[in-house]
């Protein structure tokens, strides 16, 4: 019932957009129907294959790379915690740099390539997971490690069978934040030296006053973010079902 109401509100907002768009005569704020028509024609001309999918692919690759690296580094630093005083100041400094600031450096170093864009997405997605990994690993119940030792597990097996499942809830919560950052960096990275991609599409549409097309791109972005979040929730449910049940976290 509440869910249906939520959709009704969304629909209402769309209607408001439509009316406001029709009332406006500056041409800078087209009605939603124009944006949707533009969206359909965009997809019809193969933009799905040339812009949307490559963008999504880069976001996914960067996200996967960054979160994996962040998890590995975070767990390692947390596990060998006498390492932490050595690396903490550098980490604090590096994580404080807003990710978009890395972009000019990356362009210089790697050129305006797909690899460069994946790298900056990964660099942004890495930090939340890395920091959460350090903290969660240090906070693992010492009793768990005692059980592993008494059971004769090697340190590597202990990492895999005890530490990893113990820190997974924290890692996934951080990965959710990283997902948002990855999408942001996907768009921003395509606004420099790009000839295709969603970010390029939106920027190009704005520059050429193809305002409806600009909004079409933004709608696609919204849909992409929504889809990514939904898929992520599905993944969380699969690997963290025990955690959600224990904490009484209901999905939906």
């Amino acid at each position: 019932m509440k869910k249906a109401l939520g959709y009704l509100v969304a629909l209402l907002l769309l209607v408001v957009w439509e009316i406001a768009g029709r009332a406006s005569d500056t041409g800078l704020f087209p009605p939603v129907s124009d944006a949707v028509t533009e969206l359909a024609s965009l997809l019809g001309t193969g933009s799905l294959r040339t812009d949307v999918l490559p963008s999504a692919g880069r976001a996914l690759a960067g996200f996967a790379l960054g979160t994996t690296l962040g998890a590995l580094l975070g767990i390692t630093i947390g596990w060998f915690h006498h390492l932490e005083p050595w690396v903490r100041p550098s980490l604090e400094f590096l994580r404080a740099i807003p990710p978009p600031a890395v972009l000019p450096v990356a362009v210089l170093a790697l050129g305006a390539t797909s690899g460069m864009r994946i790298t900056v997405i990964a660099a942004a997605a890495m930090w939340p997971v890395l920091i959460a990994g350090v903290d969660a690993t240090r906070a693992v119940e010492p009793g768990y490690v005692d059980v592993a030792r008494i059971s004769g597990l090697s340190p590597l097996t202990t990492l895999r069978r005890v530490i990893l499942p113990a820190v997974l809830p924290a890692l996934l919560a951080a990965a959710r934040i990283a997902l948002g950052l990855a999408l942001i960096m996907m768009v921003i990275s395509e606004m420099i030296g790009a000839t295709a991609g969603l970010g390029y599409l939106i920027l190009q549409a704005q520059r050429t006053y193809a305002i409806a097309q600009m909004y079409a791109g933004i709608i696609v972005l919204g849909l992409l973010g929504w889809l990514a979040t939904a898929l992520f929730a599905l993944l969380e449910r699969r690997v963290l079902g025990w955690y959600q049940d224990q904490k009484g976290i209901a999905d939906g």
Binding site: E141, P142, G143, Y144, D146, V147, I150, S151, G152, R161, V162, P165, A166, L168, W242, Y243, Q246
Partner: peptide
């Protein structure tokens, strides 16, 4: 083998009881 003082800090919440027992 050891039975620790605090069971809630020695049983793994992500494993079923069977898997907890099988752990060693």
């Amino acid at each position: 083998s050891v039975v620790f003082q605090e069971y809630n800090r020695s049983l793994f919440p992500w494993l079923t009881t069977l898997e907890n027992v099988r752990f060693p």
